[in-house]
Design a protein around this nucleic acid. Structure first.
Lengths: 337, 337
DNA sequence: AAAATAAATGCAAACGTTTGCACAACTTAT
DNA sequence: ATAAGTTGTGCAAACGTTTGCATTTATTTT
């Protein structure tokens, strides 16, 4: 019915000044216990909700964290978000979430918008922007935490999975199981994590005395569909060139590969071994259960918040790299010599 | 370095009044083309970003939609979110997202918080709150759209899947395939959609002359885990009482059931038929691919935004019910007579 | 050439808070 | 009794916008 009551309304009714109300609601010892309680009771009764817009205007910032992500429908992202959400809620922060559909332009636009909202800081998941971004970052005085994308700058911090190590771990496992011809199903080529995982793959190969072969890197984008297409690529290879194992950029595409293999009558892991990355919830219940490298997503989200909050308190923050563990399930077969 | 420039800064440099700058940036015809262009160029050069906090304070609302959801890590929610995101972005709205972990208390708290941010309106997914909520809703002057939860009130609108119909459709399909003993794996009992799907299940049963049996409703919460546990329940039933089919509250739990069945050596669909609900991306690639009732999630999200925006323009809005289609895949077997 | 009209700009109030400073009314110490 | 503190409250400015109204300047009409 009527507009939401403001501090002024309460002040008028209580017969005090707005400043007193403000202080009373903030539980300031500058106002007597009696009036404090009287005013708080009144506020409750009137169903008073503070205008966060006004507050953030005068304070210059608000208890809101801006979050930018390329998508919301990837289970890996969902899990990071969950960590983010829990940690930020606990700290009394809200989140303004924007997604970019992987568009770098839009990512930058979103950064601007969120800053316009006086967010205290930003958390950016799997950033896809590069280059020109750098200038913008230098001008911003709010802290920014990148999750799984490395950037540098004055108020820029990073929380990331050690993707190079993860890529190495995955490939290494395949190698110790006797595989010698291992294909890599790639992820979004603009992402940093893609590059790092590929580097780990290459290093493991070379450490084993194998040479990196460009034609064993299959383009993909980390989608279910990419996994399916990879299976068909595999089917079309001549027998002697056919890899015995796939290392997939992520679980989602590995799952796609698994499914298509079943439909085409390819037995996993007997005919082909498959390795994922992320350890999403579904990896546990796929058929066969997927061997993968865990990404501590929940922790990634939580730590991103912690880093941001620490930076907001002007305490020193160091970049964090998380190493995941190998999760051995049933999609990789041990080769006979 | 320096603070973000404000309209006043631009005004000072350009030698005009702040109001002129405001109008120039809004492309108002009240300011001459020459100054308009000059100011816009200047703003671009200074990297001006408007303070949305200030704007929303004076305007009384902001182009932000508050979104509340019980979780972010459910693929069904993710898909609705995607529809939401696309439609709202296109309309120039941002989203302030809060999740409640299914806690009704917290849902109400979030409504208050978001309103404090001067959001234009609210979209609430799968609301879990009831009762006392009603009072609050009556006091709010901003429009609220509920997705898959029915509420009523002055500025309250609904966009929902016709869950009763969906539940009926699913059960009906099982019935026409010759199943006579059909278990229902339940969802979160506080949710409206659970109740409706259960009602559809019951109606189909009764229309077929079968009686509804309470002991065939297995408690669950829509998680993967609930699906697994359901399989074990099934395993423990005496042969003659064992259902030949399961209708699951959602795909997630159906997928869990599928997986556990495979591990326990239960063949789906030969030993047991399984029916899901939602048609999440994974349902297509499970083994076997899951027969399910489509929920037009993307559309649900899009329509929620459309309804909200229409309400904001003070145009009439009617509640929308979407009927999903039966998606026949391979997890349901035709029974011999 | 004066008056009326139109076009461009500026002034100032308002939105709902927070907060430094000033003020009043009491206490307490001298 | 006076000075010096304390304690509780109020005043007013500030945050960055938008917008109705007033003002100036340029253009048209008579």
């Amino acid at each position: 019915m009527s507009q939401r009551p403001s501090i002024k309304d309460i002040a008028r009714i209580a017969g005090v000044a707005p400043s007193t109300v403000s202080r009373a609601l903030a539980d300031s010892p500058r106002v007597s216990l009696a009036t404090r309680e009287r005013i708080q009771a009144l506020a409750r009764e009137l169903d008073y909700t503070p205008s966060l817009a006004a507050r953030s205007l005068v304070m210059g910032s608000s208890p809101v964290i801006g979050v930018i992500s390329p998508t919301l429908s990837d289970p890996y992202i969902a899990s990071v978000m969950k960590g983010l959400e829990e940690a930020s809620h606990q700290a009394g922060y809200q989140r303004l979430v924007a997604s970019t559909q992987g568009d770098a332009e839009r990512e930058i636009e979103m950064v601007r918008m969120l800053l316009g909202h006086n967010v205290g800081g930003l958390i950016i998941l799997s950033s896809r922007a590069q280059g020109a971004y750098q200038e913008l970052l230098a001008q911003i005085s709010e802290p920014i935490v990148f999750v799984n994308a490395l950037h540098t700058g004055e108020h820029v911090y990073n929380v990331a999975t050690d993707n190079e190590h993860g890529g190495w771990l995955a490939t290494q496992h395949l190698l110790t199981q006797g595989h010698r011809r291992i294909a890599y199903l790639a992820g979004p080529t603009r992402g940093r994590s893609y590059v790092a995982r590929a580097a780990g793959y290459r290093r493991a190969l070379e450490e084993a005395g194998l040479s990196f072969e460009r034609q064993l890197v299959i383009p993909g984008d980390g989608s279910i569909r990419a996994g399916r297409e990879a299976l068909h690529w595999w089917l079309n290879q001549p027998d002697e060139q056919r890899p015995t194992a796939f290392f997939c950029y992520n679980d989602l595409s590995a799952l796609g590969l698994l499914s298509e293999a079943h439909q085409q009558g390819v037995n996993i892991p007997d005919d082909l071994s498959v390795m994922g990355f992320d350890n999403v919830p579904m990896a546990k219940i796929s058929i066969p259960p997927l061997t993968t490298v865990e990404q501590r997503t929940h922790e990634l989200g939580r730590l991103a918040v912690v880093s941001l909050l620490t930076a907001l308190e002007n305490k020193p923050v160091t970049d964090i790299f998380l190493r995941g563990e190998l999760i051995v399930r049933a999609s990789v077969k041990r080769m006979e010599e």
